[in-house]
């Protein structure tokens, strides 16, 4: 396997990680909710896509148009009905972190339980767009390529929106200084709810795309949460482009380790790199030191 093919395979793999991580970085960075149930949102979307595809014969790409707004709405409701009370009550960021970890941990169980009752614990998969695309001699699955394309386009679009529009500036202000943001007339709660919902929508998009090529079970959510969390921390909390780059980087590292070192160490390498980044630059590879 040449270096080029390894790199391409890594980038495509990383596309999935990046796609999954961007929603979490919005939720955690802007809405300040450490959402442990994030992965279960992804799984729920995957099941939704599975139902649409299998039961109603809806093309998963069209399914995106249904599932993503669904994820957005669901997350919005979760924030408004449950999480906003925690935010209102928290005295400082630390307290909110502990509260949100605990609450979303409970939420994780609820979602998982509902999925288990609805679908059972079985492995679920279907296949869509599982055709090879040739990129510079490397054969890549079209569905995974789609994940990469989606990650790149969503990442860049959102980045532009966040940096170039008034609305985006408001969201960023909330991320950096929620108290002061309120002083300059930003409805912090509304902005946070929106960011959280947006994150949920992104998770749903990730879920639909992942369901096209990956086997999932009702209980697999936590795996996605952890992968996403690693990418988010590496990229710098709240940093969309950071998450994008960190996701791609992680994919490349895993593929390189698998190719040149030992496939048995890919996950160990992931965690090792992650720990090193945390120690060396706790603000993330792309985060700024003072925030």
């Amino acid at each position: 396997m040449t270096l080029t093919t390894a790199l391409i395979a890594g980038l495509v793999l990383g596309g999935t990680y990046a796609l999954v991580a961007m929603g979490l970085t919005l939720q955690y960075g802007i809405a300040r909710i450490m959402n442990l149930a994030y992965g279960d949102t992804i799984i729920t979307a995957a099941f939704a896509a599975f139902i649409l595809q299998g039961g109603l014969a809806v093309n998963p790409l069209l399914g995106l148009a249904l599932v993503v707004p669904g994820g957005f709405l669901l997350s919005y409701l979760i924030y408004r009905l449950i999480l906003s009370h925690l935010v209102a009550r928290a005295s400082d960021r630390g307290a909110l972190e502990v509260d949100s970890i605990l609450t979303t941990f409970g939420l994780l169980f609820v979602i998982q339980g509902v999925l288990l009752v609805l679908f059972g614990g079985n492995y679920t998969s279907y296949s869509f767009l599982n055709v090879a695309v040739d990129i510079m001699g490397a054969k890549v699955a079209a569905n995974r390529l789609l994940a990469l394309a989606l990650a790149l386009s969503i990442g860049l679009t959102l980045y532009l929106l966040l940096t170039r529009t008034r609305w985006g500036t408001a969201l960023r202000a909330v991320a950096v200084a929620p108290q002061s943001a309120a002083l300059v007339g930003i409805d912090v709660n509304r902005a946070a709810a929106f960011a959280f919902a947006l994150g949920g929508g992104l998770a749903a998009a990730g879920g639909v795309v992942i369901s096209m090529y990956q086997t999932f079970t009702a209980t697999a959510g936590v795996v996605f949460t952890m992968k996403a969390l690693i990418v988010v921390i590496m990229g710098g909390v709240g940093n969309l482009l950071g998450a994008l780059c960190a996701g791609l980087l992680l994919g490349v590292v895993e593929t390189l380790v698998s190719t040149y070192v030992d496939p048995g160490l890919t996950l160990a390498a992931t965690y090792a790199i992650f720990l090193v980044v945390l120690l060396w630059r706790p603000q993330g590879l792309f985060g700024r030191v003072a925030r």
């Binding site: 450490m34 960021r93 972190e97 030992d262 048995g264 160990a268 720990l275 945390l278 120690l279 706790p282």
Partner: peptide
């Protein structure tokens, strides 16, 4: 790690648990 603060420490410790598991597995297998 003890100089890490807040959520970074949380995530680090989680990662640590996973790292130890992966390394033990790798050692046992190889």
């Amino acid at each position: 790690t003890l100089r890490l603060a807040g959520v970074y420490f949380v995530i680090f410790t989680f990662g640590l648990a996973e790292l130890v598991r992966q390394l033990v597995t790798w050692y046992e297998v190889n």
